[in-house]
Design a protein around this nucleic acid. Structure first.
Lengths: 146, 146
DNA sequence: CTGAATCCAGTCCGATACTG
DNA sequence: CAGTATCGGACTGGATTCAG
């Protein structure tokens, strides 16, 4: 119990100033959390349904991410005591408030993908074909809209 | 040459869909990049001046982050061939476009820090004092506004 | 001053196996 | 169905040292 249990440290010690910015940023900056929030906009989902929609996420990471979101008050976890266990996750009003500016950023990314790619190509050409070792970032799913 | 050279992979392989969202998100979600963008709003800065203002960042990470930002077209690097080398970094128009929605998110974080903390306290109380091992996120500097 | 290169601890997260 | 436990590889980023 010291690794996949809660996650989201990411930002270590800095000066003495703000703190909440680093929390939000590390929240949306991790690999999956912002996608989870995107999928949860519009409708509550059960664990495995959510797992299917995010597609590619491991249950370990989904569990940990959801717990962090629940702890921070962005997601509500509702457990139905049915015979096969059933748990529903939904965005809280607070979570929807976060989802809104977040989707703006996602939309910006979608709208400007071409510009970024062009800038990178130009940069790589300028630096003389010496490709850096930055690994190509792999695809991800669109914002939400299921 | 395979580590501090270019950074920003973070998001590995996922399905076959979007990709740009993960790029932007991993870009701003890392420990320092969004702070750098925030400091660069309003005025261009030289390397060490920027390093001083971000305060706590190592030159290795600052160098790598700046290079990634330049490559993606968000920051322009201007080298003055003076006797002590002088390099200026400034946001491009594209960079300012990114900075805007980003600052909205930062403002959201500032405005809702209390709510997040309260939610966490409530959660920790509910789960019976069994504190999770999530490390307390440390402070960071405010948005920008120099 | 502006970086590049190396060393290295701490994290993230994917795969797999097991439980109520 | 909804998790928990563990192993292991990959990546982040801090400190330090060296160079143009």
């Amino acid at each position: 119990m010291q690794e996949g249990t809660f996650m989201k440290p990411r930002h270590g010690h800095i000066s003495e100033s703000c703190r909440p910015i680093s929390e939000i940023l590390s929240l949306i900056g991790d690999k999956w959390t912002s996608l989870i929030i995107g999928r949860l906009r519009g409708e509550p989902l059960r664990f495995n349904e959510l797992k299917r929609r995010v597609d590619g996420i491991s249950q370990k990471v989904l569990t940990a991410s959801l717990r962090a979101l629940v702890r921070d008050g962005f997601v509500e976890r509702i457990e139905y005591p049915t015979v096969p266990p059933s748990v529903e996750y939904r965005l809280t009003p607070f979570g929807h408030e976060l989802a809104e500016p977040l989707s703006v950023l996602q939309q910006f990314a979608l709208d400007n993908a071409g510009r970024m790619e062009a800038a990178r190509a130009a940069y790589d050409a300028r630096t003389g074909g010496e490709k850096p070792d930055r690994q190509k970032t792999q695809p991800i799913q669109p914002a939400a809209v299921p």
